[in-house]
Amino acid sequence: MSARTRIRERKATGISILVALQALACAFFLADLASDVMTDGIGLHLAIEMIAAIALLAAVVLGAMRVRGLITAARRDEAAVATAQGALGELIRLRFEEWQLTAAEADVALFALKGCDISEIARLRGSAAGTVRAQLAKVYSKAGVESRSGLIALFLEDLIALPDKSSRVLGG
């Protein structure tokens, strides 16, 4: 389980506990209201209290439904991100194979795609900045681009599906 998932689950647990406490308070108010009605009958004060208790009950139910929906959406979004990460990883692997990058060039290209600058890449790889520059130049040449932004654009082009013009015309 990733750190992000653990944090999300802790937040969901905290919010669920809060909603449960609200439900407990609502049950207390409804029980107190029922006791007061049985003892004193329904008067203006108890009628107002009844409306407030019913509103609280509705808020608790709607809040619980909303929390559940948000948790479900967060889990769905996390699954979509994981799928996209897998797809991007596979796309990168395929392009690197297609361009016949060496292992060192592939490492340097991956660091470049992640946004590392030349000095960071050199430090991470334990090599000289000049070596990294030369490897990046080879990567750009093999990929048919001139810069890091061109390299990134190649991958974005493959990942961003533009709607077909005919589907826009037909309203689909």
Rank of each mutant, 00 (worst) to 15 (best):
R95Y: 06
D164S: 14
L124Y: 10
A103L: 09
K165Y: 06
E146P: 00
T102H: 09
G130L: 01
R125D: 04
G150H: 03
V81S: 08
I152K: 06
E97R: 15
A79E: 12
G144F: 03
A153S: 09
A79K: 14
R125E: 10
L162N: 08
G89E: 06
A103R: 09
A87T: 08
K114H: 07
R168V: 09
A153W: 02
A79N: 05
A79L: 13
L162E: 13
S127Y: 03
A106G: 05
L88Q: 07
I152S: 08
G144D: 07
A129R: 10
F96M: 12
V139A: 02
S166G: 05
D77R: 12
E98T: 10
A161H: 12
R125V: 02
A137K: 13
Q135W: 09
R148P: 00
S149M: 13
L124T: 01
A106F: 01
G171C: 06
A122I: 00
L91H: 01
G144N: 03
A106P: 02
A128I: 05
L170N: 15
V108I: 13
L113F: 06
A84D: 08
D107S: 11
L156T: 08
L113A: 05
K138I: 06
S119H: 10
E120A: 09
L162A: 14
